[in-house]
Structures are given as C-alpha cells and as structure tokens.
Design a protein around this nucleic acid. Structure first.
Length: 605
DNA sequence: GACCTCAGCGCG
DNA sequence: AAAGCGCGCTGAGGTC
C-alpha cells in the first residue's frame, strides 16, 4: 500500500451517510462479522462487526439488532463468503432474514472471474491481486486458534477488521464492474441464488444415531484388535498399517512380495488398495488381507468418532457446505464431509464400513433421496451431439450395452464369465459397473491401460474394446479432443448455462471433465433454488432439502405429509428436470428410507 | 508446537 | 509424452 493505511476511520453515522451514492442507486457497504468460533450451529457467536464504504471509510462496532435491521433493510451488503455472515446475523437476531436481503459475495465473484485460485480466501486473493500485506493476518491468526477471534487483543482486532472489510470492498470494486458488463452476470447471479438454500440445509443438519454409532465403533474396535494380533503373529513384529513405509518393509523386504507399482511423487513402493488387492489375488498372503482390513476399519473408527463429536451438542451434524468448493463449480462439504460417506451397496472397499447407518431422519420424518440418472453421460451426449448415444440413453441402459461390447465372449479372456459369454444385458452387475467406469474413462480421454484396469482385461483387448465403442459412438469419441482444442485456443470452456471455467493449456486434456462437472453443478444448483421456492410454497417448508451430493439431493419429509407425497414428487421432479438449453432429457431416480441412510428403498411413482 | 507434503481412501 | 476428473480427511514423517 505504501502510504499508510488503506482505509479511513469513521463513526457509524458518518459511514452510513457516506454509503449513500448519487441518484437512486441503493447505498452499498462492505460487511464482515467476527465470531467466537467457526461452528455457528454449536455455539459460535458474533462479538463484533465491521463496515466499509466504497471509499474505504470504515467502522468497527459491537453487534446491534437495531443497526443490523437497518443495514438489512436499506443497504446492499458486500460480503466475502456471505453464507457465513448471513447465518451469524440470523443467529444473533433469532430469525430468518436472508431471503429478503440484497447482497453481493466477493468469493463467488472471484470464482466467476477466475476459478483457478487454489483458495479464494480474502487475504490470499488480495495478496495475489495487489500484494495487500498479510502480516496482520498472521499476527491475528496466531492468537485466534481454532477460529475464536474474541481472544485477540482489541486494538489488534480492530485494525484487522478494518483491513478485512476494506479488502472486501476492494474486491467488489475490482470484480463487480467486470462481471456486471459481461456475459457471465447470469452465472454469478445463480451463485448468489444458491447461497440461501444452502444456508437452510446447514441449519437443518442431519440427525446422528448416536447409540448405533457407538455400537458400530465398538464392533469395529473388536475386529481391529483381533486382526492386529493376527498381523503381528504373521509378521513376527508390530506393524503400523497407517505407515506406508512400515507396510512396504513388511510386504516387499520381509515377506518378499513383488513391487507392482511405485508412488507417483516420491517413487516409493506403493501399498495402495489396488496394489494390495492384486497381491491378494495373486499370492493370497494373509498379511495383505489383514493390512486391508485393519486400515479400513481403523479409518472407519476415526470417521465415526468424528460424527459423535460433531453431533454432541444437539444430536445433529451441521456440515459446512461450500457452494463453490471446486474449480469446476461443484459444491463441496466439510466438517464433516458428508459427500463421501462410505456405502455398502456399491462399495469400493474390500472391507466396507456401513457408515451410512449412523444417520437417520429426524423424529416424525423419512428420508427421500433423489438423484439424476446418468447425468454425466447425458451431458457428454448433449455436447457431443451423438445421436446413437442419445437414442440408447432414452430407450435402454447404455452401461449394460457397453458391458456387452466390452465383454464379448473371448476365448482368451482371463475371466471365466466372459469366456463363457455370460454377459447379457449388463449381467452380472459387477461387469456393468466396470463397464460404466470404462465408459467414463473413454469419454474423458483415458488410455487403453486405464480402460484395461477398469475392465480387468488385457491392454490389447481394451484397445479393441475402446475402438469398437468409439466407432459406434463417433460423437463421444471426438468430444474430449474438441473441448480440449477450445481450451487450448481460448483458455476456457463455457457450460450450456454460461459458466466460464478457465484451464491452462497444459490442463486442456481435463477440459471435457471440467465442462461436464461444471454443467452438472449448474443444474443441481438451479434445482436447489427451484426446490427451495417450490417446497416453501407447496409445503410451507415442511418438506426440505438437507444435503446436495453432486448429482443427488437428500430431503426429509414429515410422515404426516406422506399422503401428499405423490403430488409433491411431481413438483420436485419439475424443479429438477425442467432445465433449458439441453438437447438430452434429464431423469431422476427416487429412493426413500424410514430408518437410516443405509437402508434405501426404491420409490415407485 | 505449527506447518508442510505425501500417501492413501471415501464419495460423485 | 501421456494423462479420466473433482473434492475432504487422516496419519506419517519431515522442517522450522
């Protein structure tokens, strides 16, 4: 900054007055709250807030209902990660106000302007854009361990708050003119629109079956003790399964198994799941089996204990859902990540943990799970304009069809079921699932080697399978290269709904994947906004969303509303599948559960 | 003690 | 030259 502070200090009246611009434009203020922690739904509270005008006249004050109400009513508020500030203000006021507020979010702006930043944090962004100093951030953060900023000395905190609102206004003044006059304004407005529905999901949370979770932990614990003793007997020493080095010493030095693969970065002998499964199949050494088991179950215990910890306050987990978590525009979930809870029906793990048993609908409610059927392949087909694939999607099961191509009876195949020509209409499911993975690998530019691994066939067979697939679906075969070409020349792709996704030239091979993920993200976000409005209107908010999982939304429905559910589901379907700009129709699958997330049952319309 | 990178692994 | 991609979380092992 060079010439003193990048902001001025004023009193509240002066700041509120100075915010009023010329003419009829509503007054605008940057707004930032400070809280005693990061978990708003388990006790964190506002202890201070800060305001900044366009010309960086700043004010720092203690929270006040009167002032907050005035700000909400009369001003456009600019926030960095508005979801947090809005939720904190709502907790302070004790009521919902976010639906009626006018606001901007500079974090969303940053993502629209350039999605490639590793983090869109305020300090990091302002540093990279104009070298705004970060010494103060370091100082404050060294005081505010675990997110409690109330322990920071007041004068230090005061200065820090002024920096923060000033930075927020700086970002707004940099980004907003660029977005406002660009074709990306709509994409930005969609990001704003999804913030409030996301807040409502975090607020609702998901109920944890605490006793069942404790029982599950106990049973895993017993298994781990037993398996650990067995491994110790086999190895003749204690083994730390969480230490890749220790496991590698055991398997490769002491037992003498062959090194099938090395790690990507440091080139150490790999002890990853895939390698271990191959070793298990080839050599059936009991140590390998026990390592797999102990690793999986230890991880499960840690994960489940986290669920207990996070639900201790009110029996519910209120995760943090980041509306723009990924560079592609996808949402992300943390504290905990409920988007990667292990499943047992289509488990990827050799020792799957039934972690979804830990979650139940709140009393008097049932779970509803609605996902888009094969949305990625539908979107690829849309962009690829592949007529045969479109027809296949609308009339049959494309992955079952792919399984028939990939697993055509072949005398040379190692798989007995393939040799016998067992594959018909995608049976068995194992082969259909593998075929599905192979289809996506081919679509996204995977090589014969990857296809061979996903299908469990030789590289030569995979090359042939791939060629045959691409010949049948020429559009699909071309699309990855075409989109990569666009990125190479323009540095970005745009989704069918106008979201820009920038990629460097070196990353252009990722372009199709980014385009598809980004488009699916657009769709589920629009769906969430539609659903929030519709469910509010049709059920008074009694039916509600609690979690988005990329192509799926989890809802809860009160039992007393079950009789209306067929009608409500028609409305929900409309909210989810009625999307403009797409040449391939969208479809949804509906499941429900009255007990836990683990026990899903199909729902027939 | 704080912070980093890496390997490993769960989901879409 | 070739590569399916995108996340968040944990523990190990290292540095400062």
């Amino acid at each position: 900054m060079g010439r003193g502070q990048p902001f001025h200090t004023g009193n509240l009246a002066a700041v509120l007055a100075a915010a009023r611009g010329k003419g009829a434009a509503p007054p605008i203020l940057a707004f930032d709250v400070e809280t005693t922690g990061t978990h708003l739904y388990t006790g964190a509270k506002i202890f201070a807030y800060a305001l900044a005008t366009k010309r960086c006249l700043t004010y720092v004050g203690k929270p006040s209902k009167k002032v907050f109400k005035r700000l909400i009513k009369d001003y456009v508020l600019v926030m960095h990660n508005a979801k947090f500030d809005l939720a904190a203000v709502e907790r302070f006021l004790g009521k919902h106000i976010a639906e009626s507020i006018r606001f901007h979010d500079t974090r969303a702006q940053s993502h629209i302007v350039d999605n490639r930043h590793k983090t869109h944090g305020l300090a990091a962004l302002c540093w990279s854009l104009c070298q705004w100093p970060t010494e103060l951030d370091k100082k404050v953060n060294s005081f505010a361990r675990h997110g409690d900023y109330s322990v920071v000395p007041k004068d230090l905190m005061d200065e820090y708050q002024r920096h923060d609102v000033a930075r927020t206004m700086f970002l707004h003044r940099l980004f907003w003119p660029r977005i406002q006059s660009s074709k990306y304004k709509k994409a930005y407005e969609r990001e704003l629109a999804v913030i409030v529905p996301t807040m409502r999901m975090e607020e609702k949370g998901i109920m944890v079956r605490r006793k069942a979770t404790k029982r599950l932990i106990d049973s895993l614990h017993k298994d781990v003790i037993k398996a650990t003793e067995e491994l110790r007997a086999i190895a003749g020493r204690p083994v730390n399964v969480n230490s890749p080095g220790d496991v590698a010493s055991l398997l490769y030095d002491e037992i003498g198994l062959p090194i099938l693969q090395r790690t990507e970065i440091s080139g150490q002998p790999s002890t990853g799941k895939h390698v271990l499964l191959e070793l298990r199949d080839k050599y059936a050494h009991p140590a390998v089996e026990r390592v797999l088991e102990i690793r999986s179950k230890l991880k499960g215990i840690v994960q489940l204990e986290k669920y207990l910890e996070l639900s201790a306050a009110d029996g519910f987990i209120h995760p943090s859902i980041n509306p723009i978590g990924a560079t592609t525009g996808r949402e992300a979930c943390s504290n905990p990540n409920l988007q990667n809870v292990a499943r047992t029906d289509t488990a990827r793990a050799p020792y799957p943990i039934p972690a979804r048993k830990c979650f139940r609908p709140r009393p008097g409610h049932i779970f509803l799970f609605i996902d888009y059927a094969g949305i990625e392949l539908r979107l690829i087909t849309h962009y690829a304009k592949d007529k045969r694939m479109k027809h296949l999607i609308m009339t049959a099961d494309p992955h079952a069809f792919a399984a028939e191509i990939f697993y055509k009876p072949s005398k040379r195949s190692a798989d007995p079921q393939i040799r016998k020509g067992y594959v018909r209409a995608g049976r068995p499911k194992r082969l259909r699932d593998s075929a599905k993975n192979a289809v996506y690998a081919i679509c996204y530019g995977g090589g014969a080697k990857t296809v061979a691994e996903t299908l469990g066939i030789t590289v030569e067979e995979a090359a042939k399978a791939k060629a045959e697939f691409v010949k049948l679906f020429p559009g699909i075969g071309r699309i990855s290269r075409e989109v990569a070409e666009t990125v190479w020349h323009q540095g970005r792709v745009e989704t069918a709904f106008g979201r820009p996704i920038r990629l460097s030239g070196e990353e252009s091979y990722k372009a199709l994947n980014a385009l598809i993920q980004g488009t699916a993200a657009d769709i589920i976000k629009m769906a969430q906004v539609n659903l929030h409005k519709y469910l509010q209107k049709a059920t008074g908010g009694e039916v509600f969303q609690i979690l988005p999982i990329h192509d799926e939304i989890v809802f809860e429905v009160p039992r007393k509303r079950l009789k209306d559910l067929p009608d409500i589901l028609k409305g929900i379907e409309q909210c989810m599948v009625d999307m403009p700009n797409l040449s391939v129709p969208l479809e949804i699958d509906i499941e429900y559960s009255t007990t836990s997330w683990e026990d899903k049952k199909p729902w027939d319309m």
